[in-house]
């Protein structure tokens, strides 16, 4: 075994048609080998640990097909939002956890400590005075984490966008995954936003 390990990353396969000169039919009718196979063949000749590289590729595939779906399923079904009320939407946020809408059906349970959360629901107007505290809270949440901008104020300032003290949209401060329109959005809209986020998490590849 050598001391250093190099990993071969498959390059994206170039389009075959682009290889043929314009205005001329390609002579070879057989499809070309996928690019990464060629890489591997070459690698076997020149790189001693090509087999491991292949193994790592298989591991990656396994992670893709087996582990990631499980993690995504778990992450999707257990979103803990931060228990933080900013403004008007916070009341509808609370109503969504009330008896009529009961967001806990989807496994959404608010926690008070940002350390235990993975969803920041910005439910209200964000002012410049609270902006850096919002960023701190976001940074205190461990990865992976998501942000929902609930309501018009969080999305773009809403009716207060002209005000001197209001951040026109929380996406100026933290990356936002889902925007929910409404002033304030009804609890159904919040649940719909959460379900949309769940779909996004399910399709997540990272």
């Amino acid at each position: 075994m050598t001391g250093t390990s190099t990993t071969v990353v498959p390059k994206p396969r170039p389009p075959i048609e682009a290889a043929a000169p314009a205005g001329e039919l390609p002579m070879v009718t057989q499809p070309a080998l996928p690019f990464f196979e060629i890489e591997t063949l070459r690698a076997e000749q020149f790189i001693p640990n090509a087999k491991e590289a292949l193994g790592s590729m298989i591991a990656e595939q396994a992670q893709d097909k087996l582990i990631r779906p499980v993690f995504n399923w778990a992450g999707r079904n257990s979103l803990f939002p931060l228990h933080w009320g900013l403004a008007c939407c916070a009341i509808e946020f609370a109503a969504a956890f009330g008896a009529r809408w009961d967001a806990e059906r989807f496994g959404v349970v608010p926690r008070s400590s940002p350390r235990q959360c993975d969803l920041l629901i910005v439910n209200g107007t964000v002012t410049w005075k609270v902006a850096h505290k919002l960023i701190t809270l976001y940074e205190q949440m461990p990865e992976p984490k998501w942000v929902i901008a609930m309501g018009n104020c969080a999305t773009g300032g809403g009716p207060f966008r002209t005000a001197y003290s209001v951040v026109p949209g929380v996406d100026k401060l933290v990356p936002v995954d889902v925007y929910i329109a409404g002033c304030p959005p009804r609890p159904e809209a919040l649940l719909d936003g959460i379900l949309l986020l769940e779909r996004l998490i399910q399709e997540r590849r990272e």
Partner: peptide
């Protein structure tokens, strides 16, 4: 206070 100061009195003038 002031974390939710949205300037409602000022916007009202507009």
């Amino acid at each position: 206070m002031g974390y939710l100061h949205r300037g409602i009195e000022k916007i009202s003038e507009d």
